[in-house]
Every structure is written in C-alpha cells, then in structure tokens.
Write a protein that binds this DNA or RNA. Structure first.
Lengths: 209, 209
DNA sequence: TTGAAATTCATACGAATGTTTGAATTCTGC
DNA sequence: GCAGAATTCAAACATTCGTATGAATTTCAA
C-alpha cells in the first residue's frame, strides 16, 4: 500500500533531487521544491524537519543510486590481468554515460559538493566510507611495481581516479558543438576502449624513460 | 596619481574576487563585499552599476591573470620534439600550482562557472575566444599520426586538455590528509615530470594493441 | 461511525537579499 | 576660495529566503 503521505514525501524528494542538482544546496529554494512537488510549503518541515533534512534524504538517494550500479568487486579485479582489470575499472567509471538519464542529477549534486561542501555531505561520507581509493591504488601498483616510489603511486592513483570523471563531468557538452558526439552505447564503448588503452599504455610506459 | 575613488573601486574588485571565489556569483552578497572593502553598500551600484557589473570586472581580472602567465607559443611548440612539446604543455597546465597564491581564487571562480554559468561569463568567453583546443589537438595528432581516426583524436584531445586540471582543481586537497603532499616547487616539478611521462607513454602506446 | 493521530494548508514572521534614494561630503578645475 | 561635479553615506524599499503557527482536513484503528 502507498499511503498518500508517502506520495507527498516521495514527490518532495524527487523534486528536491532536480532542484538541488540544478541550483546547489544554497541556491535551491524550498518554495521551488514544494511548487514542483505540488506540496505545501510547510511539508518540508513536517516530513524532513527542514531544508537540510530533505537534502540529507537527497544525498542518501544519491549514494544509493551509485551503489546500485557498482559492479566492481575488488577480489575479482585482483584475479584478472592488470590490463583487463584496468579496462573494467574504466568501464565502471564511465557507467554514468550509459545511465546518464538516471544519474545526471546525482552527478551534478556531487559536483556541487566540490565547491560548496555541506555538513550533511561531510557526515554522510565519513559514515559510509565507500572509497574506491584502495582499489585504484592496488591497480596502479600492479603497473608500477611493488617497489615503486610511494609519491609516484599516490599521484598516479589520484590521476587514475579522475580519468573517467573527465568525461562524466562534462558529458553534457560532449554531444554539443563543437564536438557533436552521438552519445549512444557504441560511442561509450569506443570511449572506454580508447581510454583504457591510453591509461594502460601510460601506466605501463611511465617507468621507462 | 591614485584618486581616492579609484582606491574604493580597486578595493571593491579585490574584495569581490575573494567573495565570488568563495561563494560563487549567486552565493556572494554585496553586503559582504562592501564590508570587506570597507566601502558603502551603494558603492557597487555607483561604480559598477550593480552586482553583475562588478562580477564582469572580476571576470576580466580572472582572464587577465591567466593570460599574464601564458607562456605557450604554438609556433615554438611545433618546432619541438613531440615529447618535449607535450611536457611544456603539461608544465603550462600545472602552472597554477606554482602560482597558487595568485591564481587560487581565479581558479575557483572558473570552477563555479562550470556549475552555474553566468551570462557575463558566457559573453566574455565568446568575445575573448582564446582557445587552447587547436594547440592540444595538434599535439595529439603528432602522437596518433595524421591518418588517425578523427573521433579518437577528438576524444584524446579532450582527454589531454583535462589532465592538468585534475591536479589544479583539487590542489587544495593535495596538501591535506590523506595525501599530505608538500606543495613546494620541487613537488610540482616531479608532478609535471610524472604526468608528462604518463601522457607521453599513453599517447605513444595507444595505437599499439 | 467515531475520535485521536497524522497530514495538509494558508498565512505570518524575522532575517537576508540587491537596489534606490537623497542628503552629506569630498574632490577637482578655475 | 569657490562652484559644480564626483563620490560617499545612512537609511529605506521591495523581494525572497527558511521556518513557525495554528486551524482545517484526511487517515485509520477501534
């Protein structure tokens, strides 16, 4: 059974995801959210305790959305050849390109947090602690070798972590001028392929001078 | 001679750079700016016609700051070996790390524009039109060859353009836990070196399977 | 059906926003 | 030193913001 009150609750969260993604936490107004959700102004206070409580709910939905698509299992990755593991890692990073209708707003919400970090986000990050950092670092080590310079490993790991992000962050621009890519699944596949090869060659060749 | 009125003007711009960088265009308040500049509320309207006019002035200062540090001359780059040209290109991208005291706020202002594009910024971009895109594309072509797949060239170019940005955008975090890099010039030099080698190896090896 | 709890609603409150106003003050050229 | 322009100033204006209020309505177990 779906209670009418739950419908209002869900409508508020849905509208909030859209508005927070568009305007950021500070820029979003409860009035716009309630208008979009066809709910009353006071509904946010009633259901979530206030604007921040609603945002916490939106952040939970955001983390949830990314977790739902996470296919990366560190154990399996380690059993694979480094090149293949890297390719899977890249593929995972680019997954938002395939699921962009579903993840676009959540990506934007995370982007906002880079510039205006909220307490709500901070607290959720430490409590969840779902870091991909060790996975990426393990991957890097397999290319650079176990006796590699720790600083080089750290930098390369940070570097690797951002490689997919480049295309995810700006994917709205990929389809527009002057690039005009047709953003279908085939394109994403070719992108993943090229990027994997760029990174494999880079990580493989970085130790050689 | 410096007229007192010009001092107010300059104080407003300086304060505005700081506040716009911190809060973004929407989030910044004219009251905070005038307070920081020790000027009157109405001074912004008087000198710049309003908040947007002041922001336009800040954007001009931003573009100016980046232009002042641009050492890249496309002709010289083409005369160099690809590896060396790429290294110089990377070096230029990482320059904000060396000049971070001077460029930090301007970088943040540009980062804000990614999420909340202002009309003022849009207009200034088209009027300035100082794109590094052709430089990067030329560089990529020298590695991939003249007969390379146009899509691969486009993707690789976009990829190359973002490589320095990875470290510039998050350079505030580089020095903090859990990375704790000591952000001196030596570190930047080592970073440029490693990144150059990663990219050189990547672009050189991408055509090989 | 009834009555208490849950939910919705229109409104109001205080604070913060960008801008305007008109007087007060300072600067500048003569 | 003086007139007129340029600049500064405190105050007020109209909006918008997040939240609070208390009554009206709906829901749901008994």
């Amino acid at each position: 059974m779906i209670r009418p009150a739950d419908r209002t609750r869900q409508a508020l969260v849905d509208a909030a995801v859209a508005v927070f993604a568009e305007k950021g936490y500070e820029g979003a107004s409860v009035r716009e959210i309630t208008r979009k959700a066809q709910a009353n102004q006071a509904a946010i206070t009633y259901h979530f305790g206030g604007k921040e409580g609603l945002y916490r709910e939106v952040l939970r939905a955001t983390f949830q959305a990314f977790k739902a698509f996470n296919l990366l299992e560190p154990e399996k990755l380690e059993a694979m050849e480094p090149q293949e593991a890297l390719r899977l890692f890249v593929r995972q990073q680019l997954l938002p390109l395939n699921k962009r209708e579903q993840l676009a707003r959540f990506i934007r919400i995370l982007n906002w947090e880079v510039l205006q970090r909220t307490d709500a986000f901070q607290e959720l990050v430490v409590s969840e602690n779902t870091s991909v950092l060790p996975v990426a670092e393990g991957l890097v080590r397999r290319f650079l070798g176990e006796d590699a310079d720790p600083e080089a490993v750290a930098i390369s790991t940070l570097w690797l972590l951002h490689q997919g992000f480049i295309f995810v962050r700006d994917y709205e621009h990929l389809g527009r001028a002057p690039l005009n890519f047709k953003l279908d699944d085939d394109f994403v596949e070719r992108l993943a392929d090229l990027l994997s090869r760029l990174l494999t060659a880079g990580l493989s060749g970085v130790t050689r001078v």
